[in-house]
């Protein structure tokens, strides 16, 4: 465990140093950005829409139960969506889709000696494999958190109009009373931070992958578990930090 943490620290330090060293592989980075953002968009939009609808319906049900009134639901739900739901759900989905894919891809390259072949050519696997994915996931995390939040809010507004009887205008009025642009900015910062964690963790497990199908499977599972836990812990830390700015 200590050795793994120590290796992770060394690897992360090398990765962040490599981030500022040429050559910058813009073509690879854009390809990865397309994979991370565009190809992940349908599943993220689909899932966060339902999460938002469930949130607003549950909030309404419990508020009615406790205080016999759900007039604060648009505001509370919007706050919850912007600060937590949109970014955390989209990042966890990104972990399972992109993180698992990266760990399996890099892990397969490791066990089939493709990583060694890169080293033989004097190419640093961190610069070649990790950096384009790191940049793509960080930028993709910001973009996806923005889109996920907007979609969540739209779905929440839609369901509150259809199911709870609030007009769009009253939903937006309720929302404005509770949320500010800061919430959206902080959500995007969180998205970027979570996006950074995913490729770093996934490529770490991929590059340490042991041979065989079992090794690749283990690397994939470990990367998803560790990245998910890291996102949840980081969410707490960032929420605590941001609470000082409200």
């Amino acid at each position: 465990m200590t050795a793994t943490l120590s290796d992770f620290f060394v690897y992360s330090t090398r990765t962040f140093k490599a981030l500022f060293q040429p050559p910058f592989r813009s073509k690879d980075t854009f390809q990865q950005l397309e994979f991370v953002t565009w190809q992940s968009l349908p599943v993220i939009v689909f899932c966060v829409s339902f999460a938002a609808m469930v949130t607003i319906m549950e909030s309404s049900f419990h508020m009615k139960l406790m205080v016999q009134n759900d007039s604060l639901v648009p505001g509370f739900a919007s706050l919850l969506i912007l600060r937590e739901l949109g970014v955390v759900v989209s990042s966890l989905l990104l972990t399972s889709r992109v993180g698992a894919g990266l760990a399996a891809e890099v892990g397969s390259m490791q066990v089939t000696e493709q990583v060694d072949a890169l080293r033989m050519l004097g190419i640093d696997p961190i610069r070649f494999l990790v950096i384009p994915r790191l940049i793509a996931c960080t930028v993709g995390g910001v973009i996806l958190s923005l889109i996920a939040n907007l979609v969540c809010l739209y779905c929440a507004m839609l369901i509150s109009e259809l199911k709870l009887g609030y007009s769009s205008g009253s939903f937006l009025t309720g929302m404005r009373a509770f949320v500010s642009y800061k919430d959206l900015v902080f959500a995007m910062i969180k998205g970027g931070c979570f996006g950074t964690v995913i490729p770093i963790v996934s490529c770490f497990f991929g590059l340490r992958c042991e041979s065989g199908a079992e090794g690749v499977g283990k690397a994939t599972t470990n990367s998803v578990v560790v990245a998910s836990v890291a996102i949840i812990v980081m969410d707490f830390v960032l929420t605590y930090i941001f609470s000082h700015f409200y």
Binding site: T112, E113, Q114
Partner: peptide, 15 residues
């Protein structure tokens, strides 16, 4: 190392 070339056991071709 650029003076060296290597054929790997599993070929290590970039798939």
């Amino acid at each position: 190392l650029l003076k060296m070339g290597m054929l790997f056991q599993k070929n290590a071709l970039f798939d």
